[in-house]
């Protein structure tokens, strides 16, 4: 009798184990569960979603033409008709703020993509092949690190100044280029460190011993295990790039009127800060929220993927 119950218990345990196989979670799944319960993550995700929609379909938020100036309404305060008031030229501040999201998001996303791509490729190659290539690349990043981010951007933009005829996209790509040139070294260094950490692992050695080609070792074994820090830092950087774009536009060397951007709006509003503060306040709030959302998202993701935080 006792023997029988023993068998039943054992069978039960086996069945349970089989069930657990289905439920058992990988690091990514666990991180995802953690993230879903994090209010900061939800808030930043919602904010980012709103900004993205705003950048792609600004027409969903406003029917007012942002390029329509009504001079006689110059600097009217906010009211039911014009929620954020009007600026010196008589433009609707609400419409301009909505349309301004596009420049920030485009510059932020493109600069992040470029820096990540460049940094990941260069950092991985340097760490994987090592030797003289590694030394050269790392000294090159040292050179770039010596240049302060914003100062470098100002230098680049004033060396290749905008002309009156520069189109919107040519100016945007120039800003992206400036930010990418200055931003890749930090990603490359981070990636190099991560790859160096992954490379001596036994599973990389095992892959070599089982005949994997260098390309497959990098793609299947090194990249998936070394990407996490770069992804987090890239997300935080996205916020920083948006701020940098606004700074350059504010200084008059990034986007310029008639292009619509938060930085340009803030710059134009400064002279009226005491008489018509709404022209300054609303684009500033949007800019801060956008930067904050990306930084918060990066933070939340980093915490979720860090097993030490559990």
């Amino acid at each position: 009798m006792t023997d029988q119950t023993g068998i039943i218990v054992a069978e039960g345990a086996v069945a349970q184990e089989a069930d657990n196989v289905g439920q058992a979670q990988s690091l990514t799944q666990e991180a995802w569960r953690e993230l879903r319960r994090n209010p900061l993550f939800i808030i930043s995700l919602i904010l980012i979603a709103i900004f993205l929609v705003m950048a792609v379909f600004p027409g969903l938020f406003t029917n007012t033409d942002p390029a329509k100036a009504t001079l006689k309404l110059s600097a009217t305060p906010p009211s039911a008709d014009q929620w954020f008031g009007r600026d010196l030229q008589g433009y609707d501040v609400y419409a301009r703020t909505i349309y301004g999201a596009r420049a920030s998001i485009v510059v932020g996303v493109m600069a992040t993509l470029c820096t990540s791509l460049l940094g990941v490729i260069i950092g991985t190659l340097a760490a994987f092949y090592g030797g003289i290539l590694d030394t050269l690349v790392m000294r090159l990043t040292d050179v770039f690190f010596a240049i302060p981010f914003l100062l470098g951007g100002i230098l680049f933009m004033s060396t290749f100044p905008n002309t009156v005829n520069s189109g919107y996209w040519s100016v945007v790509s120039k800003v992206v280029l400036a930010l990418s040139i200055l931003g890749w070294p930090s990603i490359a260094r981070l990636m190099r460190g991560a790859v160096l950490q992954v490379k001596p692992n036994d599973y990389v050695q095992a892959a070599r011993a089982l005949g994997a080609s260098p390309w497959r070792i990098v793609r299947s074994h090194i990249l998936p295990n070394a990407m996490a820090p770069v992804m987090v830092v890239s997300m935080i950087n996205l916020g920083a790039f948006i701020a940098a774009e606004a700074s350059l536009s504010f200084l008059g060397i990034g986007l310029v009127s008639p292009a619509i951007s938060w930085g340009v709006a803030i710059s134009d509003s400064l002279s009226l800060i005491r008489t018509a503060p709404w022209i300054l306040i609303f684009p500033s709030i949007f800019l801060s929220l956008a930067v904050l959302a990306f930084i918060m998202l990066g933070d939340a993701v980093r915490d979720a993927f860090d097993p030490k935080g559990r």
Binding site: S26, L27, N201, D202, Y203, Q205, A206, A207, R208, A209, L210, G211, S220, H221, P224, N225
Partner: peptide, 20 residues
């Protein structure tokens, strides 16, 4: 390596890629 000569390692946990 693989079809002719192959190898197994001491610590199987660290010899398997944790992400796949």
């Amino acid at each position: 390596r693989g079809p002719e000569i192959s190898m197994i390692f001491q610590d199987a946990l660290s010899s398997l890629n944790p992400t796949f």
